[in-house]
Design a protein around this nucleic acid. Sequence first.
DNA 1: ATTACTTTTGCAACCAAGTTGCATTAAGTA
DNA 2: TACTTAATGCAACTTGGTTGCAAAAGTAAT
Lengths: 125, 125
Amino acid sequence: MGVIRKTKSVETLLAIFENNKDAVSAVQLIDLLKEKMNKTTIYRILERLQNDGIVHSFMDKDGLKWYATCHGCSAKQHIDIHPHFQCQNCGKVDCLSVDIKIPMIPNRQINFSQVLLIGKCESCL
Amino acid sequence: MGVIRKTKSVETLLAIFENNKDAVSAVQLIDLLKEKMNKTTIYRILERLQNDGIVHSFMDKDGLKWYATCHGCSAKQHIDIHPHFQCQNCGKVDCLSVDIKIPMIPNRQINFSQVLLIGKCESCL
DNA sequence: ATTACTTTTGCAACCAAGTTGCATTAAGTA
DNA sequence: TACTTAATGCAACTTGGTTGCAAAAGTAAT
Ligand SMILES: [Mn+2]
Ligand SMILES: [Mn+2]
Ligand SMILES: [Zn+2]
Ligand SMILES: [Zn+2]
């Protein structure tokens, strides 16, 4: 069960994801919105947006949670699966629209994969 | 700077990695060794072993840190880079010796990658 | 507009993983 | 054995994230 009421806080978060094609971490959002809403609210809205297929989440190399807009997903299924890139210089994270081939692994059933590429972004090169 | 003195605690941890080809999480080690040594000691030894190229570490899907034996690495360089597998049923994690092809990404320099495959292990299928 | 109902929020307290500072212990060495 | 310094234990702390509960605010019907 996702978003049911379009509250001010929900609108604020939706606007952030609309205008931003990069990923954004929970920590960044908490800092950015610390005057506008409580961190508990942020975590709870993010969870609802994820359940609705509006955003997806993933962990970065330090175990912090990041969020980004989904494309073509719904409450029924998350189909927008892709690798992510993190710049080890400026910390920026973004979604990559490339396809990484995951080979078959004998004796194991792979349900999904999490790929994080780490290096330097365009502006830090 | 890594391990300088072969203490009892260091030997204990080394023995665990020797007899275990699976990965093991910091949390598991803390629980396993709670009668033998302090959790701070465990974290500090793991860091030293990693600096010596004896073990490598990575994050699982929940942001917990795991460790496993390195093959062919040294204090100079970690060359044993490979994907990891986590069973979503029993939680077991292990190192995969398969090669995943990472494509070139335009305008970015990829230094290394972190690949986690999630599914069911042999005994949970 | 008022009411009634239910979701959403804020707040404070909590939790778990991991880190830090510092006094004490114990390897390594001569 | 004595000396030096790496390693450890312990308590306190930090950080990211969660929970319970009362108060506030959407939504829809009246
Ligand atoms: Mn993404
Ligand atoms: Mn490994
Ligand atoms: Zn950058
Ligand atoms: Zn399993």
